[in-house]
Design a binder for these strands. Structure first.
Length: 585
RNA sequence: GCGCCCGUAGCUCAGCUGGAUAGAGCACAGGAUUCCUAAUCCUGGGGUCGUGGGUUCAAAUCCCGCCGGGCGCACCA
């Protein structure tokens, strides 16, 4: 258990004891209190607002309550001083041994530092990417891909049982278009001249080899056949090929999903949609009705029509939503209802969907649907990813493209590398538009967060390699570093670095709770920054250097500190899906 | 017209689910290089947190109204 959770529980325990002793009214539940490191280090190691939060329900003055809480907490182990400050904060200063012990744990855990059982093994489903199987992944997909993957990893790190899921939209008109595009390439492969690809079909070169493959397998069989005959064949063949393509693209990013769900097979052909709608119908959540014409936007062929509608409004949406198209087939939304119902029935009470910004208007109805199919027992969180604007040295990026007008994920990864893409995608909260500058992200300077964080890790590894020659006899084995005399870390800058390093479990938990993996990238940058600052102080103040020839004990303690930093960086990069480097070249 | 997202230093953005004096990088000004890697570092200036109200011991954070920008608005996915 992290230091922070430990003391948070100690404080809650003290509050419960006060309730039991009649010093506080029987509050149920106890209002949420915070236990966090204060911004100002002079306020100690931990601060809690408990007294202020409890003051009103208890009908007592905050400072009186603070005093009572202090008396109960002082008995606790590891607490050195408790001060009451400001309007009623309790500022706890912990014994150095508490931090020393935590640093030892960090060294021991290595990249597993920050792992916890917070999630209690509860299942979470993270659905991300879900690019339509009509071509290779383009850059627009990779932000969501990285976000979803990092989110899944951080949730797993804190003890959830995470499933990474991909929804294959293989049922709509787009895959029919894909099938027709393939048929053209198939005829081309058999020697026909096809000329310009007609508007409305997919022109990308990536279908050329697929056409050849189909021709190789089936020969002339579909040339003279009618479309009703060849369409299903081409569709199946094309979708399989596109999914293979997309899986390769995902592999390039280092992403592997656990489950791929086919809209066509799992929802349409299985009857799951009909079943879901029937169930909702039975609960009077589906009806035949007519929607009002949307205001403010002209729709040419609008006509009032009775439709099969889901009562989304009853669950907080702005209007009820159609489940059937005018030709009688299911809408995409109907399929999505069945899909989320299926997820719920598979045991996921927590679902996370990662979508593009253009789907923002879809969130309310989907949440409404989840509330309906789970009868309020499941929760859906939708993460919206904004656009990535590609730049080269500040100007809009021009590049050779593999397919059509799209810049693919592979184009970008080929140029800058997987690690750069993954980390940069998390250097901004997802709902803001992002600029991705090919020049900036590959610069070897501190302006580039990828480099800056990697460099900190590489510097630590470099120090470790030098020990043998600079301070012979000092071990760099992590097991030995755990035994270092950490009391020798006395400089304020060292203590600050250690303290920041040991924030890591909190950052992981907060990031998982909030479903915000970008916090990890920010924290790593901050940690790297603190490390570099200390390193550079060694330039002017040689006594602050990590390797002190005449003082092996001090050297050992500082190496332990460095090892802790390296462990956290490795742990953090692992969440993001980036390999820490041993040296910069 | 409606819904959602965004609005924080000159620029690009954080801000730990309501806490103490709002942070970082770039840019700007000044300083530092016989250095374990200068592939930089230190110091400093710079803010009505879009705006007006409200909730509270406490608001950048929550609620309401405006302003500006983006996305979306039967039957596409």
């Amino acid at each position: 258990m992290s230091v922070f959770r430990h003391y948070a529980e100690a404080i809650t325990g003290a509050i419960r004891a006060m309730i039991a002793a009649g010093e506080l009214p029987n509050l149920d539940p106890i209002p949420p209190i915070t236990v966090e490191p204060p911004r100002d280090p002079s306020h100690g190691d931990l601060a809690t607002n408990a007294a202020m939060v409890l003051a009103k329900p208890a009908g007592r003055k905050p400072r009186d309550l603070a005093e009572a809480l202090r008396r109960r907490l002082t008995a606790g182990a590891g607490v050195e001083t408790i001060e009451i400050a400001g309007p009623g904060f309790l500022n706890l200063r912990l014994a150095p041994a508490v931090w020393d012990e935590e640093l030892r744990r960090a060294i021991e855990a290595g990249k597993h530092y920050g792992d916890s059982d917070l999630g209690g093994g509860r299942p979470v489903n993270v659905e991300y990417v879900s690019a339509n199987p009509t071509g290779p992944m383009h850059v627009g997909h990779c932000r969501g891909a990285v976000l979803g993957d990092a989110l899944a990893t951080v949730l797993a790190k804190v003890g959830y049982r995470v499933t990474r899921e991909y929804y294959i939209n293989d049922a709509g008109a787009q895959v029919d278009t894909l099938a027709r595009s393939l048929h053209l390439r198939y005829r081309e492969a058999l020697g026909e001249t096809i000329g310009e690809i007609p508007a409305g079909l997919y022109p990308g070169d990536y279908l050329v080899p697929v056409g050849r493959a189909l021709a190789g397998r089936d020969r002339e069989r579909w040339v003279e056949a009618s479309e009703t005959e060849w369409l299903p064949v081409c569709r199946r063949f094309a979708v399989d090929a596109m999914m293979a393509l997309i899986r390769d693209d995902l592999a390039v990013l280092g992403i592997r999903h656990d489950t791929f769900t086919s809209e066509k097979e799992a929802l349409h052909e299985s009857g799951a949609i009909a079943e879901a709608v029937a169930e909702l119908h039975g609960r009077d959540l589906v009806y035949e009705g007519t929607l009002e014409k949307p205001k403010g936007k002209e729709i040419e062929d609008w006509e009032p029509r009775a439709q099969t509608l889901f009562r989304a409004k009853q669950f907080g949406d702005d209007t009820d939503r159609p489940l059937k198209k005018s030709d009688g087939s299911w809408t995409y939304f109907a399929a999505d209802i069945a899909y989320h119902r299926d997820k719920f029935r598979r045991g996921y009470a927590t679902m996370i969907d990662v979508w593009g910004a253009d789907h923002g208007g879809y969130i309310k109805r989907m949440k409404a649907a989840v509330a309906a199919v789970s009868e309020g027992r499941a929760e859906l969180d939708v993460k919206i990813c904004n656009l990535v604007k590609l730049l080269r040295a500040g100007a809009p990026a021009k590049m050779s493209k593999r397919s059509g007008d799209l810049v693919t994920v592979r184009d970008v990864v080929d140029e800058v590398g997987r690690d750069v893409v993954r980390l940069i995608m998390l250097t901004q909260k997802p709902e803001s538009p992002m600029e991705f500058d090919f020049v900036r992200v590959t610069e070897k300077s501190k302006d580039n967060p990828v480099f800056y964080i990697q460099y900190a890790h590489a510097r630590i590894r470099s120090v470790m390699r030098r020990v043998a020659s600079e301070v012979p006899g000092v071990s760099t084995d992590p097991r030995d570093l755990q035994g270092a005399n950490l009391a020798r870390l006395g400089h304020p800058a060292e203590r600050a670095l250690v303290r920041l390093t040991l924030q890591w479990p909190r950052i992981v938990e907060a990031s998982a709770d909030a479903h915000e993996p970008h916090r990890i990238a920010y924290y790593l940058h901050e940690l790297a920054s603190a490390f570099h600052a200390l390193w550079n102080q060694g330039t002017e103040a040689p006594e602050l250097r990590f390797l002190v020839g005449e003082d092996p004990e001090l050297t050992h303690a500082r190496l332990a500190m460095c090892q802790g930093v390296a462990a956290v960086i490795a742990s953090g990069l692992a969440v993001i899906g980036v390999e820490p480097v041993e040296e910069m070249r």
